[in-house]
């Protein structure tokens, strides 16, 4: 199939970007969206033009690196990652608009590449259980009900791609933070640092310049790993409880 692409081009963080139009021909429906970009980039390179920079790595939907905002949706139509979006989701003759994630906390680096290090800093603020190597008791010492383990797992599947931020009209990172806070709040191992964790992670989230959650649910609707909105409720109550009862003034 033949397609028209309107792609955001921006030389670097400081320059002003603009949309550029490209035409791609003979695209197979079995191609992934990124493979279609590979084809375009090969053409650009041979024409002496600068290929379009975009983030990608595992191309199997788990590393969370790919991050294109396609036709009004993070990762495009369908609840998946960009690398798992296939061209059979489009029709011959379609025009596809591709933009980078847009958020103050995710500045554009080049073209479709953004800087998501804010997520790493949020995890550094408390998204861990402090256990030094070698300190651990036997793994079966603490039984965890299967339902709890499964629920914690559902929250833990977040791949940190940032689609939640990209989808939210407020560029809020609540779903990302909530997934980590909820995972540890549910598990017995997470109890010791439970209050401190949520207070510090939320403080870091605010400091990074993400917006607030207004419960529109857009994040969960677009999340490629289907992280539930219930996690945000858990985050809210963890935060409220921690602020009201913790010893940290």
């Amino acid at each position: 199939m033949n397609l028209t692409l309107k792609v955001w081009r921006q030389k670097n963080a400081n320059s002003k970007g603009e949309f550029k139009t490209y035409h791609v021909k003979d695209i197979s429906p079995d191609m992934s969206f990124l493979e279609m970009f590979d084809v375009l980039n090969e053409e650009l390179l041979l024409k002496g033009e600068d290929p379009i920079a975009f983030d990608h790595d595992c191309r199997e939907g788990i590393c969370g690196m790919c991050s294109m905002y396609i036709n009004g949706h993070p990762h495009g139509p369908g609840q998946t990652t960009t690398c798992q979006l296939h061209m059979r989701s489009f029709k011959d003759g379609d025009t596809i608009v591709v933009e980078p994630w847009r958020a103050k906390a995710f500045p554009v680096v080049k073209d479709l590449v953004v800087d998501r290090s804010a997520f790493d800093r949020i995890i550094q603020a408390g998204g861990y259980i402090s256990v030094n190597t070698g300190n651990a008791p036997d793994a079966n010492e603490i039984p965890i009900p299967k339902e709890v383990a499964d629920a914690a797992f559902n929250a833990a599947t977040c791949i940190g791609c940032g689609a939640c931020v990209a989808a939210c009209k407020n560029a809020s990172a609540m779903l990302f933070v909530a997934a980590k806070v909820a995972q540890f709040a549910m598990l017995p191992q997470g109890q010791v640092e439970r209050k401190k964790r949520v207070e510090q992670m939320v403080a870091q989230m605010d400091a990074e310049g993400f917006g607030a959650c207004t419960n529109t649910g857009a994040c969960a609707a677009e999340c490629p790993k289907e992280i539930s909105l219930a996690n945000i409720a858990i985050l809210n109550r963890e935060y409220l409880a921690a602020k009201a009862t913790s010893e940290y003034v």
Partner: peptide, 28 residues
């Protein structure tokens, strides 16, 4: 205050937005 901060959190908007949330939730 929240609305102002939320606007600041996305200084450059998207060219195309297709919403998967209710109109009311976005326009409180």
């Amino acid at each position: 205050i929240l609305t102002i901060k939320n606007r600041q959190a996305r200084p450059v908007g998207y060219a195309i937005v297709e919403n998967r949330s209710t109109w009311a939730s976005r326009n409180m």
